[in-house]
Simulated scan of single mutants.
Amino acid sequence: MKKSIALIAALAALALPLSANAHRAWLAPTSTSLSGADAWVGFDAGMSNGVFIPDHAAMNLAGLTITAPDGSTAQAENMSRARYRSTFDLHLTQQGTYRVANVMGGLIVSYKQGGEQKRWRGTEADMAANIPADATDVVATRTNSRIETFVTLGATSTTALAPTNEGIELVPVSHPNELAAGEAATFKFIRDGQPLANQQVTIARGGARYRDDPEEMTVTTGADGSFTVTWTEAGMYWINTSVRTAAQGDQMAANAQYNGALEVLP
């Protein structure tokens, strides 16, 4: 039963755009800028009411992908999943910037069989073999979710920041590990490699548990998918945007969302 409830919650998170009251997904590092020949960074990942506050559910890290500064894949260590958060460590052995992302995607298919409402989730290639021939009212939705952050050992680099052109991605114009309070930073959002224009972006600073004002702001991307934000204070910031597209002709419905964590230094 617990597994079924967790699956339903995960599907709902992928299927619906986030609102001010929805549970928010985040992947937060203990540090983002480190020095030395090597270093360790810890990560927490969860779904919560307030950003970076583990109070709802741990994140499934099945899609965790860590890109090292040279473009190779690094491995997480000491992975653990508790009730409210998942954790892991990353040993930084290369100089430069790492991209740490939990990427999930596939199809969510709802249908009726014998009058009973059913649901299946999997890959597009497996859909035909898993939806019964007598199924009716079949509705398929393509989903993609990216939850990520960035950490740097030594000087920053850009190789790991190259987009994959799948789903919604943040393309840094300003480097994500060179952010400072009082300074403006510019980023671009793309979806499947194309600019995500006129898109609403939510930005929230962590630590809201101890403030009356949640200190959230909303910006809108330009025609090229870019947006600029001036950081008023230092801290860890959560960035979110989501898109829901209705089915059109042969094109199935699609939901995509992005959740990022960026540290702004004093």
Score class of each variant (00 low, 15 high):
residue 183 E to H: 10
residue 162 A to P: 02
residue 125 A to H: 09
residue 172 P to F: 08
residue 124 E to A: 15
residue 108 I to W: 12
residue 153 L to R: 07
residue 167 G to Y: 00
residue 152 T to C: 03
residue 116 E to W: 06
residue 126 D to P: 06
residue 172 P to S: 08
residue 141 T to Q: 09
residue 195 P to V: 01
residue 167 G to C: 04
residue 169 E to S: 05
residue 113 Q to M: 11
residue 124 E to M: 13
residue 152 T to W: 00
residue 167 G to Q: 09
residue 156 T to L: 02
residue 119 R to T: 13
residue 146 R to P: 03
residue 190 I to F: 02
residue 124 E to P: 02
residue 121 R to N: 07
residue 181 A to W: 00
residue 134 D to R: 01
residue 134 D to W: 05
residue 160 A to T: 00
residue 149 T to Q: 04
residue 162 A to E: 11
residue 170 L to W: 12
residue 137 D to Q: 14
residue 154 G to N: 00
residue 164 T to C: 04
residue 170 L to Y: 07
residue 113 Q to E: 15
residue 188 K to M: 11
residue 166 E to I: 14
residue 145 S to Y: 00
residue 193 G to F: 05
residue 120 W to E: 03
residue 180 A to R: 11
residue 142 R to F: 04
residue 189 F to V: 06
residue 129 A to E: 14
residue 114 G to Q: 11
residue 186 T to I: 09
residue 139 V to T: 14
residue 116 E to P: 01
residue 149 T to A: 05
residue 116 E to N: 10
residue 179 L to G: 04
residue 184 A to Y: 06
residue 114 G to N: 13
residue 154 G to L: 04
residue 104 M to H: 06
residue 188 K to Q: 15
residue 132 P to L: 00
residue 134 D to G: 07
residue 192 D to Y: 01
residue 105 G to D: 10
residue 196 L to V: 11
residue 141 T to C: 01
residue 131 I to P: 08
residue 167 G to F: 06
residue 103 V to A: 10
residue 140 A to Q: 07
residue 127 M to N: 00
residue 194 Q to N: 13
residue 132 P to C: 01
residue 183 E to N: 12
residue 103 V to T: 13
residue 117 Q to Y: 07
residue 116 E to I: 13
residue 108 I to E: 10
residue 169 E to W: 04
residue 159 T to I: 15
residue 140 A to N: 02
residue 144 N to P: 01
residue 185 A to I: 00
residue 108 I to V: 15
residue 152 T to Q: 03
residue 108 I to L: 15
residue 194 Q to W: 06
residue 175 H to A: 05
residue 134 D to M: 00
residue 123 T to P: 03
residue 115 G to E: 10
residue 123 T to H: 06
